[in-house]
């Protein structure tokens, strides 16, 4: 034993101490990754095949197979609207909020007068938690006391606009509120990227006779490729984890259903349908895996080349 170990040590580039350090450096993160991410994920998937109510142990009689998924896709009236709202959120952010944030960043990058002030103003909502944002906008949208209806003069019987109560309207009202914060977030990310673009590139483009628009789209935007990817990923994550505003406003019902609020209302509310909530969580997980896989494969491919 001692001999073979000694021999191996002779051929190894690493000392025993190095190996120990390496093992710890790899082992501890792997342990936490397994325990805190993969463990709960797998338990969630397993729970989605049960009707466990969160009380007592789980026995064989709790296993219901695919019944949760079946009722989720067929009978449960809130699943499809939640899925639709999540996708709407994603599209709205990708098409409107994120480009708006990038546009503001480009404007502020031009060192216009008072740009610090604008920067602060746009960024201010980002430091607020979405729950606070929801609360602020709730007051704006309130039917009689709210700022918006009072400005529009639509507070009386017959003319009232029920911003948060009308299921065909409230998701848009909430998207505006969520974008209010998201735009500032994207702006700051993008502004940081713009600041790091080598000014020589712009100079060269100007010498070549490019106008501001051409400079941005032909030179700056392609150079910003890594930041662009980060921004797309951030937007997707923000859309999929959308939760706080809808939950604060009405716990995610009446047109504001989201997958995340359905999970919460089913799993950790008094209802305690842990199994059913887990099934919704698994659906959200599968949807989330899409962008994650795309992102990771891109990253790995870039590293490989």
């Amino acid at each position: 034993m001692a001999v073979s170990e000694g021999r191996r040590r002779r051929y190894s580039l690493l000392t025993r101490r190095d190996k120990l350090v390496l093992a710890l450096m790899v082992g501890i993160p792997v342990f936490f990754d397994l325990a805190l991410i993969w463990g709960p994920t797998i338990v969630s998937i397993l729970l989605s095949f049960t009707n466990w109510k969160g009380i007592g142990g789980i026995s064989a009689s709790n296993i219901v197979g695919l019944k949760n998924y079946e009722s989720l896709f067929t009978v449960y009236p809130f699943f499809w609207s939640a899925l639709r709202n999540n996708l709407l959120w994603l599209v709205f952010f990708l098409v409107i909020a994120t480009p708006l944030g990038m546009f503001l960043a480009v404007l502020l990058d031009r060192e216009i007068r008072g740009s610090r002030l604008y920067q602060t103003a746009f960024y201010l909502p980002v430091v607020l938690s979405l729950a606070v944002v929801g609360f602020i906008w709730e007051l704006q949208y309130a039917p009689e006391q709210g700022f918006i209806n009072n400005v529009l003069g639509r507070t009386g019987q017959g003319s009232l606009i029920d911003w948060l109560g009308d299921p065909s309207l409230n998701i848009w009202a909430v998207l505006v509120a969520a974008s209010w914060r998201h735009v500032g977030y994207i702006m700051v990310l993008y502004l940081a990227g713009l600041k790091s673009v080598d000014p020589v590139l712009r100079e060269a483009a100007a010498i070549d006779g490019a106008n501001a628009r051409q400079t941005f789209f032909r030179v700056v935007f392609p150079v910003m490729q890594p930041i662009n990817i980060v921004i797309v990923v951030v937007t997707m994550i923000e859309s999929l984890r959308a939760f706080d505003i809808a939950y604060i406003i009405n716990r995610g019902k009446n047109g504001l259903e989201l997958l995340s609020t359905l999970i919460t209302n089913n799993s950790i509310s008094e209802a305690n349908l842990v199994g059913f909530g887990s099934a919704i969580a698994v659906v959200l997980l599968v949807i989330s895996l899409g962008p994650i896989v795309i992102y990771l494969t891109r990253m790995l491919r870039e590293e490989a080349t």
Binding site: S44, S260, T264, A281
Partner: peptide
Amino acid sequence: PTLLAACG
């Protein structure tokens, strides 16, 4: 939100 169900 995704893993909420499992956490507890």
